[in-house]
Design a protein around this nucleic acid. Sequence first.
RNA 1: GCCGAAGUGGCGGAAUUGGCAGACGCGCUAGGUUCAGGACCUAGUGGGAGUUACUCCCUUGUGGGUUCGAGUCCCACCUUCGGCACCA
Length: 860
Amino acid sequence: MSGGREEGGYEPAAIEPRWRERWEEAGTNRARGDGRPKRYILDMFPYPSGAGLHMGHAEIYTISDVIARHARLQGFDVLHPTGWDAFGLPAEQYAIRHGVHPRTAVDRNVATFKGQMERMGWSYDWSREIDTTDPEYYRWTQWIFRVLYERGLAYEADVPVNWCEALGTVLANEEVIDGKSERGGHPVVQRPMRQWLLRITSYAQRLLDDLELVDWPESLKEMQRQWIGRSEGAEVTFAIDGHDDSFTVFTTRPDTLYGATYCALAPEHPLVATVTTPEQAEAVTAYVERAARRSERERMADVHEKTGVFTGAYAINPVNGERLPIWVADYVLMGYGTGAVMAVPGHDQRDHDFARAFDLPIREVVSGGDVTEAAFEGDGPHVSSGPLDGQDTPTAKRTVIALLEKAGQGRARITYKLRDWLFSRQRYWGEPFPIIHRADGETVLLGEDALPITLPQVARYEPTGTGESPLAGITEWVETTDPRDGSPARRETNTMPQWAGSCWYYLRYISPHCAERFVDESAEKAWMPVDVYVGGVEHAVLHLLYARFWHKVLFDAGLVSTPEPFQRLVNQGMITAPAYKRIEADASSTSRYIPPAEVTRRSDGTWVHRESGETVERVVMKMSKSAFNVANPDDLVEQYGADALRLYILFMGPPEDDKVWDHAGIHGITRFLHRLWRLVVGDSHGPAKPRSAAPAEGEARRLLHGTIAGMTRDMEQMAYNTAISKLMVMLNGMGELDAVPEEMLAAYLPMLSPFAPHVADELWSRLAETSDRFAGWASTAAWPTYDEAALVADEVELAVQVNGKVRGRLTVAADASEESILTDALALEGVVRALEGMQVTQRRVVPGRLVVLGAKPEPS
RNA sequence: GCCGAAGUGGCGGAAUUGGCAGACGCGCUAGGUUCAGGACCUAGUGGGAGUUACUCCCUUGUGGGUUCGAGUCCCACCUUCGGCACCA
């Protein structure tokens, strides 16, 4: 049989659009729900910014696409959807800047994104596309808020927010950098305002425990554990000398209670005002006011500078009746524990620092260190501690907790660092709350029939300057009536934060058009949980914790069937790129960086700006326009094709590793695709390889089955870089044959198709012109299987080691006996030389690999 | 400071988990082909030494250890990158 016809070479632009159309027409990317085993392959949906698709998107979505396409070849029914996380600040700011409605901006950006995503050949089921800003979507976001509210998990409270006077608005934490507004650099202060919060803290323990149920990177689980920050200890109640009031502290070291020499309250602690004596009032007031003015960031900046003021009051130590001075100190945080601490300078370094600064007594109650020098925070026998004397820390903790419980002055307690989730924003572009406030002060949750509460059309969506959302100014929207009795009421004018829509979007994909419920009940049971979730580690604590929280609430309400939403999680690494920096330029210079095209490498390895001759520094950094190091996926697709870009992204390294973009590297991939094209079709550099209908034999058969075996393992482990290298090795091997068995190509192209789907299907269809073996498409074929027996070679080469060093090589039949191998090995010239004057003490054959000989000098 | 991950050629990386370090690719060198540029093809490419068609030594951040044998296991240290950071 002859090879293909002579014709034009590999031209991705000529074939890629055609195949995408065919897949779309045939619906090959659709999830069927036909009862086959399922795989739900999800990636973190994009925020459709005005900047379009960047290389980070290209990486994450290529990874998830390869997982999805591979699963389809394995016969799974695959759900692989995408959509738009389109509420939030960036759309609003873009809209303000360009003077268009956020809706218009989002629609425009989505159109750009969708085109770019389609050009990458990602096999999304577009029939399930969702948009968090579509009222038919956020109706259900509001509906889930109702579930939270009805379960007592949503409440209003006065909490500090970031207030920027100059901009006249509240800012999100992301918009505050080092105590100043991101835009304009104006001062930002903490100011209490009425806000909605979600009681995520009541799920703290389960969010911690259920990390055991999921297959996530250990480092990411650890980040969530630290964020939740469970700590075991006790609370201890101190009476105040001469007052009826008392206060409670939280401590992880109740065993050191006999070593307490003072107590400290947070500046915001409600008792500060009551306990302060008249003589101290002026100093305390001044200190509290100063602390209030300092932002949280300022407070954190000078961590080691301990400040505080004595209130003049004394607390009574419940175990020994000692009078302990009560101080106010800003190293005590109102937001953690009880906002009050018992201070044990001998065994807590912070208290030690404070005691040294204010000349307070330091007492040793656990021996093992020198408390005059530094706090001893370790374990050891307790001393000067009454009934605890001689006990170690765990025992002393139990003893003292028992004592306190008996006296009614304390108990064991667990606290978490995790705070309740501040769930409202003073913004236009977010989900409205299904809440109204009656004139009589009652807060009313609107019924399901009122949903969706849609955003009104407005002329201005800029911040109002009053700290309220722009919605507050739209009288006809705000003023409403209570549907129960028609009495006047005002709508809640805060909106939900951007995280809300992404807390449950993975459920909506399952039944995106379901009108009766947020997710179809039986479809939910069929598809959940998400089998593989691919996304960036930047969402390690926020999105991934919030989504787990909502999911557990829905689970408790009997609305979903799994306790966790995302079974396996994969974090892709960040793609960075080299940039060239002027060494002399100061930070404010507008031209700190030189475009790579204007830079040349000197022979000594340094880099020089050709035009000016100045030496520049090569730095690897995040891609950014100002550093001229952005690689744009769209441009690369145009230049090299989607298949080449997909292959190259994965070939750079393992998915989870950070990668440095190297433009030159993609040429290797392009060459590979051209060689493959030439082998099958032929091009101007050579004709197609002759093909044979006969089965692969000998070396070719081993190459085929070895590649399938290796690829199968690599795909399972997501070792895509080595999988691609195996495809290169097999292609090189096929190139050396006189004729390529069609059997090899029939296995090769399906294995290539998850990575380079367009060219795989194109070549497959070319082959179909001359052979019946190539029915259908490579992308819809079955993943090939291999024969274990075909992996074994007839002859194997063994390395012969003497004391761990290779001294010879031996080619033997695969089934040669150990004895004959050893005999042959000992006769090898190099081995004989190495064994001169030596006595062989050990001989072993590692099958298929090497011969091990141990030897030591012969006794003389 | 605490927690986590990682250090392998000029570069990206590989090594079936204790068994021939450097697969595959980039880059580079030489030759071929081409009107030219590019593309393509062939060969070479960790370092060093020598008696240079061959042989030896060294080499996976550093220093020790276990083993016939260590990139891989153990101990100590160094560096880099992430996360947290007055959390009582």
